[in-house]
Design a protein around this nucleic acid. Structure first.
Length: 192
DNA sequence: GCAGGGATTTTCT
DNA sequence: GAAAATCCCTGCG
């Protein structure tokens, strides 16, 4: 039985990706507090996964991916957007779970302000969107997600996940045959 | 509703 | 030189 977030993120990465669905991501800043429920994730592994940033070793960008489980890995993609990951596996391994979409729970007006839109479905339905909505920046790269301003909470007591499916990851060319994306088919808040 | 293209950093070939 | 774990705007139906 998983009791804490620390336990949760220390397991096998694909299993962690599945278990993060339903957990909440919270960020408290001077602007206010924003909370979202994780509804879509992707696992990135350290071996047999050429799509993973850790596939060709450690660089300055991916260094946080090699920290202990429960750290954040935030990186810039396409030179424009940032993506948020939860580091998994043992320190030095290089595995993580990309958070792809959130259901906005608290601070929706703050999210709308940060996103520049009032459309609820556009607030956090994509990895770049949720980073913007939550006010996550590159300064969050490498922070621990247990007790700080940015942290993960387990699902509320009594909350139950619906059906969770695994399928190909989005936006990659390599390793398309691996079913490492986890999502709820009936969820209106996922990216697609 | 859908296709196409631009923005712009990091890394690898 | 090109591709990449993306998003938004435009143009066209």
């Amino acid at each position: 039985m998983v009791e804490t977030v620390r336990d949760l993120v220390a397991g096998e990465t694909p299993e962690v990706a599945r278990r993060l669905i339903g957990c909440r991501l919270i960020h408290e800043t001077e602007e206010g507090r924003a909370v979202g429920r994780i509804v879509e994730t992707e696992a990135y592994l350290s071996s047999g996964d050429p799509a993973s940033h850790s596939a060709s070793g450690r660089t300055r960008r991916n260094a946080a991916m090699f920290l202990a489980p429960g750290h954040a890995y935030v990186y810039l993609i396409y030179g424009v957007h940032h993506c948020f990951n939860v580091v998994t596996a043992a320190q030095g391994t290089g595995e993580a779970v990309l958070i792809r979409a959130l259901e906005p729970l608290e601070g929706r007006s703050l999210m709308a302000q940060r996103r520049g839109t009032d459309r609820p479905r556009s607030l956090a339905s994509g990895p770049g969107k949720l980073v913007q909505a939550m006010g996550i920046t590159s300064e969050c790269d490498g922070v621990r997600l247990f007790r700080g301003a940015l942290r993960i909470l387990r699902p509320e007591r009594g909350w139950a996940a619906g059906e969770i499916l695994a399928g190909p990851r989005i936006g990659i060319r390599k390793a398309r045959h691996l079913a490492l994306r986890y999502y709820q088919p009936d969820c209106q808040w996922r990216s697609r």
